[in-house]
Amino acid sequence: MSVPLSHVLILASVLFAMGLGCVVAWRANVIMMLIGIEIMLNAVMLTFVGGSAHWGIADGQLFALMIMALTSAEVSLALAMVVYLHRRKGSVNTDDFDSMKG
């Protein structure tokens, strides 16, 4: 196993940037935005795991696990919200939900 840490980080950054791009490009669609967020979170997890492997301690993996737990909480709430909003407005287009604009 002789992968430089920088390659792991670059892979993570590519994933992260793709997630970001997904969020930005699909900004009209809540579900795709959430998917983009998941990609970004995975990239972060990869960073943590890479760091954990680099320094040989478990903490990074622990944080990856915690990110997963957080994500599951987040996604369950977010999707419940999506379903709820869909029921109310019949739409998952983010730009339809601007009633709290300044």
Binding site: V23, V24, R27, A28, T94, F97, K101, G102
Partner: peptide, 13 residues
């Protein structure tokens, strides 16, 4: 501050 999530996201990013 349009209230449109999309614009916020782009700004944030």
């Amino acid at each position: 501050s349009t209230g449109r999530v999309s614009i916020y996201i782009v700004s944030f990013a």
